[in-house]
Computed example of a mutant assay.
Amino acid sequence: MMTNLFSIFEPSSSVFSLSFNWISTILGLVFIPFIYWASPSRWSLVWSKIIYLLHKEFKALLLQYHLGSTLLFISIFSLILFNNFLGLLPYVFTSSSHMVMTLALSLPLWVTLMIYGWINHAQHMFAHLVPQGTPPALMPFMVIIETISNVIRPGTLAIRLAANMIAGHLLLTLLGSTGPTLSTSILFILVMSQILLLILESAVAIIQSYVFAVLSTLYTSEIN
């Protein structure tokens, strides 16, 4: 019996005292090689089209485009998207709903950008702390505000992704747990609402992957 609603997010199964559920993070890689050795299919053509559209989008967002620089953000988008969709399957661990994974994606990226920006573009980084047209009296406050907003960026990226995935899964679990106590007529309404919520969660899975990748691209373009 589930004693805690949040227990569905705990990596409880383990092998040799290692969390076994985290293997679901790399299950998305299983679907990628089929594009390279199998005959072209609708799946491979659709995925190639998505990658091409993302490449054009990220290339337009980057102020200084370097060859292959969009591959990093396309890879982040693919990893989050696969994990979000795999988490919608029954009995599959949703690794993207944990801060351990989301911070592991956002924090190294942000630290790398900060190190690169302050070493190579220190003057631009200082100028970015005070927006153009700021009155002199407000400049000290703007420096503090911009510094805080810059420091919390990896946290906001991680929390946004994890919170959105947790919210949908909790709602699905909460409604599903009431099924055995309902009558047949109300149970039909519950099933239909669960299907609609599942469709909504599929849209959220795509949107959150795109938002994470786009915001990472925008943060990158600010240091160029």
Rank of each mutant, 00 (worst) to 15 (best):
61 L>P: 00
45 L>F: 11
57 E>R: 10
68 G>F: 02
18 L>D: 11
47 W>H: 13
29 L>F: 03
18 L>R: 15
70 T>D: 03
23 I>Q: 12
81 L>T: 12
35 I>T: 15
68 G>Q: 00
62 L>Q: 05
46 V>W: 13
27 L>K: 03
60 A>W: 05
32 I>L: 07
72 L>S: 09
52 Y>A: 10
60 A>N: 02
32 I>C: 01
36 Y>M: 13
79 L>T: 11
76 I>Q: 08
22 W>P: 08
20 F>C: 10
55 H>D: 04
49 K>L: 09
22 W>L: 06
49 K>P: 04
58 F>E: 01
80 I>R: 08
36 Y>K: 13
79 L>E: 07
23 I>E: 07
31 F>V: 03
59 K>G: 00
71 L>H: 07
34 F>Q: 10
48 S>A: 13
68 G>P: 03
45 L>W: 10
45 L>C: 13
68 G>A: 03
40 P>A: 12
43 W>G: 14
72 L>D: 07
45 L>Q: 15
49 K>H: 13
47 W>L: 12
45 L>E: 14
74 I>Y: 03
50 I>W: 05
73 F>E: 00
58 F>V: 01
47 W>V: 12
69 S>Y: 02
71 L>D: 07
71 L>K: 09
70 T>A: 05
59 K>M: 03
68 G>K: 02
67 L>S: 06
76 I>S: 05
24 S>C: 11
54 L>Y: 03
48 S>Y: 08
64 Q>Y: 01
46 V>A: 14
78 S>N: 12
52 Y>W: 07
39 S>L: 14
33 P>M: 06
46 V>T: 15
49 K>Y: 09
18 L>S: 12
34 F>T: 13
73 F>R: 10
74 I>G: 02
80 I>K: 11
28 G>C: 01
69 S>C: 06
30 V>E: 02
70 T>W: 04
39 S>R: 15
78 S>A: 13
48 S>P: 11
36 Y>V: 15
